[in-house]
């Protein structure tokens, strides 16, 4: 048993009980339906902005990009404009590939010691695949949720929904769909990928060893969000029209508590609120940080252009004059040129 994930699991359980008991036993619908979500959103926005601001306040004194390709030097040597970008455009492409496709993670290797004593490194794509599925599914899910916050439902949201559920026809057998409303791939993929990432964290000894409670917590939370969401859709069938009226009320700042919406909804909403509050104070800020990483977002033309360091300051050096004073006689004896002859300094 590992105390760290037990701690996180327990935390999630408590976080589940709060809205469940709160709403079913005490009828705290306004609290869980209106106040907490609004407070959470506020904390998220302020917290996120403050973190980004905090990072930007620290300067980038030196340009330290990690060069992952051939430098631009002699004209006849082909350089890597993306992995060793000398131009802003190159950096932009490099960053897009990092953010959208997790390019560095794509390089991942797994090291193994073969029986003959040779160390081998094989390409290991599962983490990349799982991470990519997880994040894209998350994004699609968020965009799909815009249907609750805009009237009429924007075209791109409808298009996305169409493709998201359309793929289902291709991937799932007929038997699977019987009696179900259109399945959204994204929800299922999100859940599956989150479970994979969690399993990996628990099962791989190395990853387990470096993990903190703070690494299990967001995964459990997101799994909680996905499960409660999927349950509403396929099991406890909530009143979509009622929810939409409620969410539109929230965004128009004229909230009303819907009738006939079960506890699952409050649990779902509360989990999302917790995620929003947790986000700015946690490693989830990698979402902002990845854009500010100096090993990735800088050009590599450090020898071609002068860049300055805002806090550069003069330092104590051992000057040539001091050096010559130290060794003048020896230098003259050895026939090395000197700036001042012995006679000049003897006075």
């Amino acid at each position: 048993m590992n105390g760290k994930y037990m701690f996180s699991l327990l935390a999630i359980f408590v976080l589940f009980l709060l809205p469940y008991v709160g709403v079913t036993a005490f009828g705290l619908k306004t609290l869980f339906g209106i106040f907490i979500p609004l407070i959470a959103l506020t904390i998220f926005i302020i917290g996120f902005v403050r973190r980004i601001k905090g990072w930007s306040e620290s300067p980038v004194p030196f340009r330290i990009p990690t060069t992952c390709g051939q430098q631009k030097s002699l004209t006849w040597i082909e350089s890597s404009p993306i992995d060793n970008p000398t131009t802003k455009a190159g950096v932009v492409v490099r960053m897009i590939l990092e953010v959208m496709l997790f390019r560095s993670l794509f390089r991942n290797l797994k090291f193994k010691r073969e029986s003959n004593g040779i160390l081998s490194y094989s390409w290991e794509l599962w983490l990349w695949l799982g991470a990519l599925a997880f994040h894209w599914a998350f994004l699609v899910t968020i965009v799909r949720h815009l249907r609750f916050f805009a009237e009429p439902i924007p075209y791109f949201v409808r298009a996305l929904e169409f493709f998201d559920s359309f793929f289902r026809v291709e991937f799932f057998t007929d038997a699977f769909q019987v009696g179900l409303p259109g399945i959204y791939m994204s929800g299922i993929v999100l859940l599956a990928a989150a479970i994979y990432l969690l399993a990996r964290r628990i099962l791989l000894a190395q990853v387990r060893y470096v993990s903190l409670a703070a690494d299990y917590f967001p995964l459990f939370l997101i799994i909680g969000i996905a499960v409660s969401g999927i349950m509403m859709r396929y099991a406890s069938k909530v009143d979509i029209v009622g929810i939409k009226a409620f969410t539109m009320g929230l965004v128009t700042l004229n909230p009303t508590i819907p009738e006939g919406v079960g506890a699952t909804f409050y649990v779902h909403l509360f989990f999302v609120s917790v995620l929003l509050i947790y986000f700015p104070f946690s490693k989830l800020m990698h979402m902002g940080g990845i854009f500010m990483s100096p090993t990735r977002n800088l050009t590599t033309d450090t020898r071609a252009k002068h860049y300055s360091n805002p806090w550069n300051y003069p330092v104590k050096t051992h000057t040539y004059e001091e050096y010559e004073d130290d060794y003048r006689e020896k230098m003259i004896d050895a026939g090395l040129p000197v700036d001042k002859e012995l006679a000049e300094v003897k006075e």
């Binding site: 973190r51 905090g54 990072w55 930007s56 620290s58 300067p59 980038v60 004194p61 330290i64 560095s104 993670l105 991942n108 983490l127 991470a131 791989l204 190395q206 990853v207 470096v210 993990s211 903190l212 690494d215 490693k283 800020m285 990698h286 940080g289 990845i290 500010m292 990483s293 100096p294 090993t295 806090w311």
Partner: peptide
């Protein structure tokens, strides 16, 4: 003084890559 240090202290997700 160093954004690198601050960002690197904050954003590691301990993915183990």
């Amino acid at each position: 003084k160093f954004r690198s240090f601050k960002v690197f202290m904050d954003i590691c997700v301990r993915c183990g890559a």
